[in-house]
Design a protein around this nucleic acid. Structure first.
Lengths: 138, 138
DNA sequence: ATAGTTGCAAAGGCTTTGCACCGCG
DNA sequence: CGCGGTGCAAAGCCTTTGCAACTAT
């Protein structure tokens, strides 16, 4: 993680565990989920460290912060440009592999540094569950 | 606002004022800004009513909720599909008139109901202010 | 020694909720 | 009369912050 150490930022066990957790869990976990997940093996870690580290990793471009729901932020190890989809029924957040349009680095005079593309709806799984038996929708 | 009254939802002065405020202020105000703005002329309105009403108007498709920053939600009278841009320097949120690609109503088996496209960077105004004198960027 | 990091607890900010009162239908 | 809506205050939840102890350079 030279991107950190080159700038006087230390690579600690906590930071490694947090980045590893996101690497292993591609379900776009929340800060709390990261905290609870790491705590199982590393019980002394604190919420503050998780929050601070996620913020730091985001600033250094190592993770992506998703603002797809109002209640809380989610985090994604995959920083490549891709779309996210949230199911309004089960709450799960999926990656969408839709090919993205060319995104301009400048628009109407503004310098554009990054994009986020979010979609909402009903996921494949929830669509399947609601059908089959009933005939008239609620 | 038959879309409301048809379903037993009443059209009240408070709701009118809140929708009007968004109609008049296309700066993507926060709930607090809406509250403070309306309070000047209608001092008895409460925050709870503003929050509840914004939620209701959103659910009925009369306004759009923007999750472009983690700290708070913003609201937009314009519900047509368009992109938003946030300046990370001054914090202002602009509309972008970029023509959007055709957005699928289905993607990878998921039923897609709506999209949000956000961009961040430095706005035209802030870019202009920082230049002119200095030569090397920070 | 110094600058950076952690963990705890407390604070902070945005948003939601419970409840009594009010008003239209 | 009843359902819906308002306003107040309190609660709730997510996130940030202050600070003392600690560690790698």
């Amino acid at each position: 993680m030279s991107v950190l150490t080159e700038r006087g930022v230390r690579w600690t066990v906590q930071r490694y565990l947090i980045l590893s957790y996101l690497y292993d869990h591609r379900t776009h976990p929340t800060a709390e989920e990261v905290y609870q997940g790491i705590r199982k093996a590393f019980s002394t870690i604190s919420r503050a460290t998780v929050y601070n580290t996620l913020e730091l990793l985001k600033e250094y471009g190592l993770v992506q912060e998703l603002l797809i729901e109002k209640e809380r932020a989610r985090y994604d190890f995959d920083v490549s440009p891709h779309m996210h989809f949230k199911c309004e029924k089960c709450g799960m957040v999926y990656d969408l592999e839709i090919s993205l349009p060319p995104l301009p680095s400048e628009a109407e005079g503004h310098l554009v540094k990054g994009f986020q593309l979010y979609a909402v709806g009903i996921c494949r799984k929830c669509r399947g569950e609601g059908e089959g038996a009933g005939t008239s929708g609620g």
